[in-house]
Design a binder for these strands. Structure first.
Lengths: 148, 148
DNA sequence: CGATATTAGTTGTTTTTGTAACTAACAAGG
DNA sequence: CCTTGTTAGTTACAAAAACAACTAATATCG
């Protein structure tokens, strides 16, 4: 047997567990409070942080598939958190923009996120947090082409 | 605006991205090759690594809900990777055990996992890997009671 | 005992995701 | 203009996950 191999040492497993644990803890701020799904919160975030964007731009920035974006936009629109506007020069594109209510929700969730992140990272030494985030960023950005 | 807040700096987001990226890259070893889902691979792992167990024990060790375990067991049994046996002293429990084919699959996927983990961590300095894994373990183990 | 509560595991139903096919708008070459 | 191709976004359907209700076996306590 390939002894000594422990799932708890296996990076994809650890990443999954940590992601699930922290994601579940944070979702109360957008799910319980606003009935949003994670993709909806990500779309809201991008519009709040970067201003009006098209669905495609959000998908590229957030690494989310266009069908998920499409459904999130429908849901956010139903909640009156965003408005869509066809662009004159190319009617395939839609300019998405937060409403005042959407901007308010963005602001509140963002503040909660910053606070959450601080409380989470406060458990570690600052230099370890730096290492952690750097490693995660690198893993997240490995290109699909890059054979892991 | 609560400026400067970037999703790419937000730990739950980073964790999710890294987990998704690495999990997707690894699944070829159990999904493409054996048609298993992730939960099936986790159940297979626990039986291969720790010997015969009940569904409940696996669920507790792997932090997986009993309905997911139940369905994974059905699927693994259909693939002839495990056998079930009612326990005499309490017929509610089932002793789950890998078949020879199951053990062979376990062995192969385990070897692939070790190799995968090594190639993944080889990109970082050993001390950074230690920090990374320690942080992830700690985040994953925060008790639900522990208000993050 | 016999009623009630627990426990292990299963099944059914609803959400959510993934994937592929689709529509409408535009682009480009003949 | 008029095929052919491409792009943004939607829809439809299948796979998977989440959650709740269920069954069968055992435990507990009057």
């Amino acid at each position: 047997m390939d002894d000594a191999f422990e799932l708890r040492e296996f990076l994809p497993y650890l990443l999954n567990q940590a992601a699930e644990r922290s994601g579940l803890a944070f979702q109360k701020h957008y799910k319980d409070r606003y009935g949003m799904l994670r993709t909806e919160w990500r779309v809201l975030f991008h519009l709040g942080r970067y201003g009006a964007l098209t669905a495609k731009e959000i998908g590229a920035m957030a690494r989310v598939h266009k069908t998920k974006i499409s459904r999130a936009v429908v849901a956010l629109e139903a909640k009156r958190f965003l408005s869509r506007e066809e662009m004159e020069h190319d009617r395939r594109h839609e300019r998405l923009q937060l409403t005042a209510a959407g901007a308010a929700a963005f602001k509140e969730i963002c503040a909660a996120a910053q606070d959450f992140d601080q409380r989470l990272t406060a458990r570690f030494r600052p230099e370890d947090v730096r290492v952690l985030k750097a490693c995660l960023t690198q893993i997240a950005e490995f290109e699909m082409a890059t054979k892991i």
